[in-house]
């Protein structure tokens, strides 16, 4: 993690945290989202905004683990907006517009057996964020940026 943790309750202070998402450990997936949730709670962010951000981050984290062999997540909070940046070096998303369609998925049956891969991840991230951008290059990776206003 980078950046000095902000003292509890000081929401006006800009804050940035970085988390490594391990692509080899499905069991541990979600730990970055959990850490972010705890952090936002300690900063006094309203529960509804925390929940929306947590869903965005968790869906993204799961995607990074099952599709891209992990990556990095950065969370920034300036007192008004939570910005989550998820970057991986995976295969990329050839057609982001298609990937945003509910039900469209490239997940394998093995992933569905784990309870994911219904083609709801990206649409759900878009729905729960105020803004979302997908920057993806085939064969090089994907960076997804999402904001949630408090």
């Amino acid at each position: 993690m980078t950046g000095a943790p902000a003292p509890e309750g000081r929401r006006s202070e800009a804050l940035k945290e970085r988390y490594i998402v391990d692509g080899d450990d499905f069991q541990a997936a979600g730990s970055a989202s959990s850490a972010m949730k705890k952090l936002l709670r300690s900063l006094g962010v309203p529960p509804e905004a925390i929940r929306r951000a947590a869903i965005c981050m968790y869906e993204g984290e799961i995607n990074m683990v099952i599709h891209a062999n992990g990556g990095e997540a950065e969370v920034a909070f300036d007192g008004e907006t939570i910005t989550m940046t998820l970057a991986d070096s995976g295969p990329g998303i050839p057609d982001p517009e298609l990937a945003l369609r509910e039900g469209w998925s490239t997940a394998t049956d093995a992933i569905r057996d784990l309870g994911f891969g219904a083609g709801m991840g990206l649409p759900n991230m878009k729905r729960n964020s105020d803004e979302m951008t997908i920057d993806s290059t085939a064969g090089q990776g994907t960076t997804i940026t999402m904001t949630v206003r408090v």
């Binding site: 541990a28 997936a29 979600g30 989202s33 949730k37 929940r51 869903i55 784990l114 309870g115 994911f116």
Partner: peptide, 15 residues
């Protein structure tokens, strides 16, 4: 009826 840690994680995210 699903049993893996992501069930607990999902419940956590959804409060």
């Amino acid at each position: 009826g699903l049993v893996n840690p992501q069930v607990i994680r999902t419940a956590e995210m959804m409060d």
